[in-house]
Every structure is written in structure tokens, then in C-alpha cells.
Simulated assay, not measured.
Amino acid sequence: MQPIISAAELAETTGRTVLLDVRYRLGGPPGHPEYAKGHIPGARYVDLDAELAGPPGAGGRHPLPDPEQFGAAMRRAGVSADSDVVVYDDWNGWGPARAWWLLRWAGHERVRVLDGGLAAWRAAGLPLTTDEPAPGKGDFVPRPGSLPVLDADAAADLARTGLLLDARAPERYRGDIEPIDPVAGHIPGAVNAPTTENVTPDGHFLPAADLTRRFAALGATTAPHVGVYCGSGVSAAHELLALTLAGIPATLYPGSWSEWTTNPSRPVAKG
């Protein structure tokens, strides 16, 4: 199954697909009020902060969720073991990519991201609704660990022996500014690969061949292993999706910079 789906393709499967509306914007506002104003028919809202992440702390701002709580959230959203799931948002695709990665990490392979998000659905002239479906009755049981992850030590090692990509904006990578986390800079040896460069101005992913060329220029096709991090493990999932489209295996560091900087003994690079 391809990791993305077009609006036209999704329209043909509506009614047979579990739809998750994962509206999330860095710094707010909350997504549910926007969902309530209009969403794809049949979609249920999923809260990234509350259902796709654990409480912030030593593990970062968006650590992996408790598997039982994540499973319960997905069952409420209607996800079952045999469900085809499509996730979308109305911003830049970070929230849906987080849900896509988490479901796969928890053992559910049949999940795709709506390419171009809600804007693509609207541009195709497809309908929205304000009707909120009742909670689902899915039977999904997570199998956490179905995808590998990096911890801080493994990320540091990969930056030396393979390729560790930093998916944040260049100014945050360089340490010019840091609007969220307490320390500015990046993991020593990491290479900047902003998530925003994986998509067109209208939010669609670049063609697979273009993504392959982009990551090849950064060394991803020759590195023995590729890892990705960002600020808190959300936009890095979007980069992992782009790498998947490019045919390049990669591993997420879920704690990302927000976990890295909780330990003052960890080194920080700038520039």
C-alpha cells in the first residue's frame, strides 16, 4: 500500500475507509473547533497532544503514547485490525504523518495520508460536513515496536556512523533562534533537511524521483543507515513519509531535540 492517497482516490473509498482528522498546529490553536466547522464525511477527530503522544517531560514534548491509551483512542476512532485508514489535516501534514507512523509502529500497516490534506479535498469540489459520527467500535490492539526507533545515544552514534537528518527549519538547526525548546542548535553531525522542502507550495508531496534526488544529495542513498529527528518527533514523521516515498528506509528518533536538550551533558552544535 502506498503511504499517500489522492483526494480523487479517497472519494472512491469513502464509506469503506476509516477517516481520522488529525488537525494540529505547532503552538495552537486546538484542532477540534476547526474540525467541527467542517470535515470529510465520516471522519473522526483525533487529538495529537492527548492521543498521539504521552505527557511531555524527560522524553520530550511529544513522547510515544502509552500503547494501551493509544489503542483505546484508535478503537474509539473506529480502527480495527482489517481497517484501511486515511489520515488528514488542514495545515502541513505533520499531524497525519505522526498518526501514519504511530499506527505502523503499533503494527497497523494499512494506513495512508491524504496528499495535500483538506485543501486538496476542497479543490476537488468534494463535500464537507459538520456532522460528528458517534465513537467507533474498533478492535485494534497495538503491537508496539513494529517499527524500530532511535534513543538519544543511538541518534548520536548514527550522526557519526550514518546519516542523521534534522527536519527542522534551517534557522532552528543553526541555532539562530529557538522559539520552543530551552537550548538552540542541533545534534553534532546531523544534516539539515527541512520538512518544508519535501512538498510543493500547495502541500502535495514532490514526485518520488524528485524526493530520491533530494535525499541522495544529502547522502541518504549511500549511508549505511538513516535516522530523522525534529523538535518533538512530529515533523520528523513527515520526513520519514517523504523518505518512504523515495524508497529510502529510515528510523525515527521520537524524543528528538526536545528530549536531547533535557540532559545538559549532551553536546550541542551550532552553525
Rank of each mutant, 00 (worst) to 15 (best):
P127Y: 08
A119E: 14
G15Q: 11
P144K: 07
Q69H: 14
Q2P: 15
V234N: 02
D89R: 00
I177D: 13
A11H: 13
P179H: 02
A152Q: 05
E239Y: 02
F140R: 03
T195E: 09
R172Y: 12
G162F: 05
D151F: 08
V111S: 06
H225W: 00
D49Q: 09
R98S: 07
R214L: 13
G31N: 13
T244E: 15
Y253K: 06
W260D: 06
S146V: 06
I248S: 08
K137Y: 01
D66I: 06
G71C: 05
D82L: 10
N192M: 04
V141H: 03
A152R: 01
A217W: 02
R75M: 01
G185A: 12
P182K: 07
R104F: 06
G27Y: 07
G189Y: 03
L163Y: 09
P254K: 08
N192I: 08
G125A: 12
T196G: 15
A97I: 07
G42Q: 12
W91D: 08
P249L: 11
A236L: 09
V85N: 03
Y35H: 15
H62N: 07
T130L: 04
G117C: 07
Y229I: 02
G57R: 12
P142W: 08
L218Y: 11
W121S: 03
A154F: 02
N92H: 15
P207W: 13
G27D: 11
D90S: 15
R143N: 06
T14R: 15
R16K: 14
E197R: 12
L118T: 01
D181E: 10
V111I: 14
V268M: 01
P182Y: 03
R122K: 15
A124F: 09
P254A: 04
P224S: 12
L150Y: 02
R44P: 06
T195K: 01
G185C: 12
G28L: 14
D66V: 01
V149D: 06
V85G: 01
R76K: 13
D202H: 12
I5P: 00
G42I: 08
P201F: 08
L10T: 01
R25A: 14
L252M: 06
A50D: 12
R44G: 03
P249G: 10
G255M: 10
K137I: 04
H62P: 01
A120E: 11
H62C: 04
R160N: 11
R266I: 00
E239C: 12
N92Q: 12
V86M: 09
I40W: 02
G28T: 08
I180H: 10
A36G: 03
W101P: 02
K270A: 05
R213I: 00
